[in-house]
Amino acid sequence: MGETDNSTMTDGSGVARGSGVSLWKQIAEAITAEIAEGRLAPGARLPTEAELAERFGVNRHTLRRALGVLTEQGVIEATPGRGTFVKEVPLHYAIGARTRFSEIVSSEGRAPGGRFLSSQREPAPRDIAERLKIPHGTELLRIEIVREADGVPVVCGTHWYVADRCKDLEFLVAATGSITRALEALGLGDYRRLETRVTARLADETERTLLALPAGRVVMVVESVNGDARRLPIQYTRSRFAADRVQLIVKS
């Protein structure tokens, strides 16, 4: 239950006590109005719970109910370790023959970024070998990376490459934070999308951590095969996009 009012009074907090309208609802409406009026821009970080509770003159329980409703409505988003933010318009991510994360993010007026996580060598399992059209057991280079837009994680990706065609690729990705620039350095910058498959599921614990997602959120899993100028597969990728932060657009 929220706080109850014993007298009608409007103070500097912007809420009217005793008005018959629950305080949590008034707080939610006040924050929504600030967003609509542009005083809180998309991507803006909200003050802390303590600061908001003091501003509105309410307890934490009442404030959290207001924030919870706004979260359910998709107005704001709380990300573990970062705070609560005004939801941005989903990133329009076009999937076509030439799909480049940095170019897509930049075209949306946002700053692209990347974090290299790890790399390792491993034999190709049958499913990936089939996608890359190589013998089962061929040595692959596996790279894990997170990509961001304006500092907000959008996608975590696992990339597999035929190791003998992409020597030192892991070091180039670690240095640049970019798959595209790393492949360009190896003369493979003109890679093209050969195949794309899209599914959706609940994010697992690792994905929630990497993408700063609360429990219960969905990821879109995009499996893709990219090839060189001769359409020879060089990369198989399994990307997990935060579903509410991106809109996938398939171009023909």
Score class of each variant (00 low, 15 high):
residue 22 S to K: 15
residue 83 G to K: 03
residue 90 P to E: 01
residue 66 A to L: 07
residue 54 E to P: 08
residue 13 S to C: 05
residue 77 E to H: 10
residue 27 I to P: 08
residue 76 I to Y: 02
residue 100 R to C: 10
residue 96 G to W: 08
residue 33 A to S: 15
residue 91 L to R: 04
residue 17 R to W: 15
residue 105 V to R: 00
residue 101 F to M: 03
residue 95 I to G: 00
residue 114 G to V: 04
residue 119 S to T: 08
residue 115 R to Y: 11
residue 49 E to K: 14
residue 22 S to P: 13
residue 52 L to H: 02
residue 36 A to H: 11
residue 23 L to W: 08
residue 79 T to M: 13
residue 121 R to A: 11
residue 100 R to V: 14
residue 85 F to S: 04
residue 32 T to N: 15
residue 8 T to F: 15
residue 47 P to R: 03
residue 50 A to H: 10
residue 25 K to H: 12
residue 116 F to A: 07
residue 64 R to E: 10
residue 56 F to K: 02
residue 97 A to C: 11
residue 54 E to M: 12
residue 96 G to A: 05
residue 117 L to P: 05
residue 122 E to L: 14
residue 88 E to D: 00
residue 15 V to E: 04
residue 82 R to M: 11
residue 112 P to M: 09
residue 28 A to I: 03
residue 77 E to N: 06
residue 70 L to E: 02
residue 89 V to C: 03
residue 63 L to S: 06
residue 108 E to C: 10
residue 21 V to A: 01
residue 58 V to N: 04
residue 122 E to V: 13
residue 11 D to W: 14
residue 77 E to P: 02
residue 64 R to M: 12
residue 98 R to T: 15
residue 87 K to H: 02
residue 98 R to L: 13
residue 79 T to K: 14
residue 67 L to Q: 04
residue 39 R to T: 12
residue 69 V to C: 12
residue 44 A to L: 02
residue 99 T to Q: 08
residue 38 G to E: 07
residue 19 S to C: 04
residue 101 F to E: 09
residue 24 W to G: 13
residue 104 I to P: 01
residue 109 G to L: 08
residue 59 N to Y: 02
residue 14 G to C: 03
residue 40 L to T: 05
residue 72 E to C: 06
residue 77 E to F: 08
residue 106 S to D: 11
residue 42 P to K: 01
residue 94 A to T: 14
residue 111 A to H: 15
residue 117 L to M: 04
residue 78 A to F: 13
residue 15 V to W: 03
residue 68 G to I: 03
residue 93 Y to R: 11
residue 13 S to P: 00
residue 124 A to W: 02
residue 21 V to C: 02
residue 56 F to D: 05
residue 50 A to I: 11
residue 13 S to A: 08
residue 34 E to A: 11
residue 26 Q to G: 08
residue 72 E to A: 13
residue 57 G to R: 01
residue 91 L to N: 07
residue 84 T to Q: 06
residue 91 L to H: 02
residue 62 T to K: 04
